[in-house]
Write a protein that binds this DNA or RNA. Structure first.
Lengths: 185, 185
DNA sequence: TCCTTGATGCAACGATCGGTGCGTTAGCCT
DNA sequence: AGGCTAACGCACCGATCGTTGCATCAAGGA
């Protein structure tokens, strides 16, 4: 779930700084469109850290990208309670669509999917699934009818991520809200 | 009568053989799960071709993967005419879902998305869009009502590719047919 | 058939990547 | 405050990548 800083062996100041610097360097290099030369020495140089450190802590580029994706795509977002399922979903898909408009986010997601394989890909959407499940569960606790989480993910996250990754038409908030209409028909 | 296909390049026997061997080697290496060590020398060795040839003809791994994706995902598939829009779509999504079950296809798609960027990603789905547009157009020529191509792509290709790429639950034909139901509601 | 020319093979090179052993630094604990 | 120990920096190494110049081969045309 969230980053619990008590689990790591040594959550001290320096390790955390190095970790943050490396993560930030990965996002910076990806933002610069250098998806080609995204190599560990380049990341280390950008982070002001010795390459050996990166090799030892993360091992491979795949694991590093996976870690960056997890920490980037696992914000502790609390979806505000609008009182209705439709309102919650519309608010949420707007947030997701806005997030997927950021080219840096797309670059990180593409690189993670291509390098970290299945695990990296699911790490990109795990938190979104959890948020969606929370919204559906909240509606059920209100006593209302709610579709299955799987179906909601198919009809909401499916079009959103498909447009973001595979097409050149980034999702817009207005278009995303129509997806809610198609789901709650 | 046969118009000599004087194309700019040389469609002769050897170039075509080399091209086919390299394309096949890329798919083979990806099928072996070697997405990590997917490098041009490795591809050339697998294809029985000198690395220089690959560097000269394709230039970079991104362009090579893009070319492989284009040639793999652009079969001249003719969707059979079942007489109704629903039948055509159900038949088509079944084909797409079956294709997306192949791990080799998924590996190629992930590698292309991660390496070849936006252009590679759209190359993976361009032909699917064309097929869907053809189905919709056929229904209109029958005089029937058909949804917009964009909407159909969002609600059909979206869930299909989302499941295939981002989740560990590959799409099944039965599930894919339900998508048609959600679209034609 | 021979000639032209584009495509491929070959060998060598510099550059850089990925890894290892060791000394040093800086958190955490008593 | 001082020791303990994980984490980091440094120097060095082998392996491999990406490129270039030149020789060779094969496809297409006169």
């Amino acid at each position: 779930m969230s980053t619990t800083p008590t689990i790591h062996t040594r959550p001290g100041g320096r390790s955390a700084r190095v970790r943050a610097a490396v993560h930030h360097a990965v996002e910076e290099l990806l933002a610069d469109g250098l998806s080609e030369a995204l190599t560990i020495p380049a990341i280390a140089a950008r982070a002001g850290v010795h390459p050996t450190t990166v090799y030892r802590r993360w091992g491979s580029l795949a694991e590093l990208l996976g870690a960056v994706a997890v920490s980037r795509f696992s914000g502790d977002i609390v979806v505000p309670d609008t009182g209705t399922l439709r309102g919650d979903l519309e608010h949420w898909v707007t947030d997701v669509a806005t997030d997927l408009t950021d080219p840096d986010v797309l670059a990180l997601m593409r690189a993670t999917v291509g390098t970290a394989g299945t695990e990296g890909a699911s790490a990109c959407v795990a938190d979104r699934h959890a948020q969606l499940a929370a919204i559906v569960e909240r509606e059920r606790s209100r006593g209302g009818e709610a579709p299955e989480v799987e179906r909601a993910a198919d009809l909401l996250l499916g079009p959103l991520y498909y447009r973001a990754i595979f097409t050149q038409r980034p999702p817009t908030p207005a278009w995303a809200r129509e997806l809610v209409g198609a789901l709650l028909r």
